[in-house]
Amino acid sequence: MPAPLLVPALLGVAFLVLPLVGLLVRAPWSDLLPQLAEPQVGQALRLSLLSATLATAVSLVLGVPIAWVLARSTLPGRSVLRAIVTVPLVLPPVVGGVALFLVLGRQGIVGRFLYEQFDLTIPFTTTAVVIAETFVAMPFLVISVEGALRAADARFEDAAATLGADRWTTFRRVTLPLVAPGVAAGAVLCWARALGEFGATITFAGNFPGTTQTMPLAVYLALQSNPEAAIVLSLVLLGVSLATLLLLRDRWLGRSGSPVA
């Protein structure tokens, strides 16, 4: 391997791994069990897993069609649409949270109507957590699925059409199975991003144990008063996400392989 590639690669790996090593080294291992037994930890973890999973589900339902429109349709202004869809990637999540307030908050454009007509408020609820996480995480899914769609051989869709499949049937029976590995990868990425979401969540959903306090929020607040507890919580988050990713890789991504060369 050429040194101009190898050396930066090793440096890069060290840069990514050392902070995690730091967490492991500084973790209060003897205190680990009592810390984990705190009811708030389980509560936050459950809420995190639930909301990240729901956010991923919503992202799949809305994001895969967006990706299809971007990759397959001949709609004018698709590049503008793509830019808009990816805005949450560069927007500071806290700003995203404020923006969600402006639309879905009690005083927001849509939220005001919901509040006045149905006495429905979204902020400070678990729904708000899912919305905030979806807002931030969905672009990862869209970009991943769009890439998979572009890489997939569109002639399979031609073949399906000549076999009597309309566009919806073609999408369901041919396109989607073909890009399944890409969709799965995008969903995992989306889920991981949702699991770690902090800024938009704490802004739009607030922070209340059991309702809106996800793990990252718990970590941040623990950091204010009890850094060791924060490290423990971080390790739990780290462990859960690593375990989930490994599991999905074996069970889901590995099996599909690459059907389209």
Partner: peptide, 18 residues
Amino acid sequence: DTLEEDVRAALTKVELGE
């Protein structure tokens, strides 16, 4: 309904009328 991470965040939610 929410335990804010700092006082400015709490104030912002008042300013937004939320």
